[in-house]
Simulated scan of single mutants.
Amino acid sequence: MFAMTLWLGNTAYLYISVSFAQMLKAIMPVAVFILGVAAGLEMMSCRMLLIMSVISFGVLVASYGEIDINWVGVVYQMGGVVGEALRLIFMEILVKRKGLKLNPISVMYYVSPCSALCLLVPWIFLEKPKMDEQRSWSFQPLILTLNSLCTFALNLSVFLVIQHTSALTIRVAGVVKDWVVVLLSALLFADTKLTLINLFGYAIAIAGVAAYNNHKLKNGTPQASSDKSEPTQSVPLIQSSDSNK
């Protein structure tokens, strides 16, 4: 599932803008909740149903306001969202039902090699020939190294923030980070054009995500407080998903 998330999520950037991809990722809590209900990890309630409806409506409005929408990219991004949601569900099952307690670095020891193997075979047949044709091998090591360093730094920073503050801090920072990604992508990339409908829909979705985070934190206050002293709980595993890009 981690390999699926990386492949589909990164492929989406070939067809849609960074800001629009970030807006579509706001649907993540909906996918996680629905799959969690199916797996018996979440309980359906009227409040949660309302929150999921608000997030879905916001993403729908943001998509409607997209000027150059590419449905191929949307399908790739939604596939990446489903893959990430399944990964989080499986991780939660391992943590809560199987009793595993691993921090993000330990998780990467196990997940990264498996993900690399899953990505190696399709890479040989689909991407390696294109790289050979473009003769871009000399530039790839530097880009991949910098990307890997950023990913490692993100995982480590998330772990340290949760360890020294709380799960609430990292969740609030995550919402702020989403807005920063959207706004910076609009400034840095010339082909990114944001409309008022885009921003309005994304604001609705983010409000729903904030309500979802608040609801989850209220229901899991004892566990959230223990995460501050015991960073090996499930929260760091879920939050480390932001590093995929």
Results as ranks from 00 to 15, higher is better:
Met1Gly: 05
Phe2Val: 07
Phe2Ile: 11
Ala3Pro: 07
Leu8Phe: 12
Ala12Cys: 07
Leu14Ala: 10
Leu14Asn: 13
Phe20Asp: 01
Ala21Gly: 06
Gln22Glu: 12
Gln22Lys: 10
Val30Glu: 06
Val30Trp: 04
Val32Ala: 11
Val32Glu: 05
Ile34Arg: 00
Leu35Tyr: 01
Leu35Val: 10
Ala39Met: 10
Gly40Gln: 14
Leu41Lys: 09
Glu42Ser: 08
Ser45Asp: 15
Leu50Pro: 03
Leu50Cys: 09
Leu50Arg: 09
Ser53Glu: 05
Ile55Met: 00
Val59His: 00
Leu60Arg: 00
Ala62Gly: 02
Ser63Phe: 02
Tyr64Gln: 10
Tyr64Lys: 02
Gly65His: 06
Gly65Ala: 07
Gly65Thr: 06
Ile67Pro: 00
Ile69Val: 04
Asn70Val: 10
Val72Asp: 02
Gly73Arg: 04
Val74Ala: 03
Val75Ala: 14
Val75Tyr: 12
Tyr76Gln: 12
Tyr76Trp: 14
Ala85Gln: 09
Glu92Arg: 13
Ile93Arg: 09
Lys96Asn: 11
Gly99Thr: 08
Leu100Ile: 14
Lys101Thr: 08
Leu102Pro: 03
Asn103Cys: 01
Asn103Val: 01
Pro104Cys: 04
Val107Cys: 02
Tyr109Asp: 05
Tyr110Asp: 03
Val111Lys: 02
Val111Ile: 12
Val111Ala: 06
Val111Pro: 00
Ser112Met: 07
Cys114Trp: 14
Ala116Trp: 03
Leu117His: 04
Leu117Gln: 06
Leu117Glu: 03
Leu117Ala: 10
Leu119Ser: 08
Pro122Thr: 11
Pro122Trp: 11
Ile124Ser: 14
Phe125Ile: 11
Leu126Ile: 15
Lys128Gln: 14
Lys128Met: 12
Asp132Ser: 13
Asp132Asn: 15
Glu133Ala: 12
Ser136Gly: 15
Phe139Ser: 15
Leu142Phe: 12
Ile143Thr: 14
Leu144Tyr: 09
Leu144Val: 09
Leu146Cys: 15
Asn147Trp: 15
Ser148Lys: 05
Ser148Gly: 13
Cys150Met: 14
Thr151Ala: 06
Phe152Val: 12
Asn155Gln: 08
Ile162Phe: 01
His164Ile: 07
His164Ser: 11
Leu168His: 12
Ile170Phe: 06
Arg171Gln: 08
Val175Ala: 06
Val176Tyr: 09
Val181Pro: 08
Val182Asp: 06
Leu183Gln: 12
Leu184His: 07
Ser185Glu: 02
Ser185Thr: 01
Leu187Cys: 11
Leu188Ser: 06
Phe189Met: 12
Ala190Ser: 15
Ala190Glu: 14
Asp191Phe: 15
Asp191Gln: 11
Asn198Glu: 06
Leu199His: 02
Gly201Phe: 00
Ala203Ile: 01
Ala207Met: 03
Ala211Pro: 09
Tyr212Gly: 01
Tyr212Thr: 01
Leu217Ala: 13
Asn219Cys: 09
Ala224Gln: 10
Ser225Trp: 03
Ser226His: 07
Ser226Gly: 03
Asp227Trp: 13
Lys228Phe: 09
Ser229Glu: 13
Glu230Tyr: 15
Thr232Ala: 11
Thr232Arg: 14
Gln233Trp: 08
Pro236Asn: 02
Ser241Met: 11
Ser241His: 05
Lys245Thr: 07
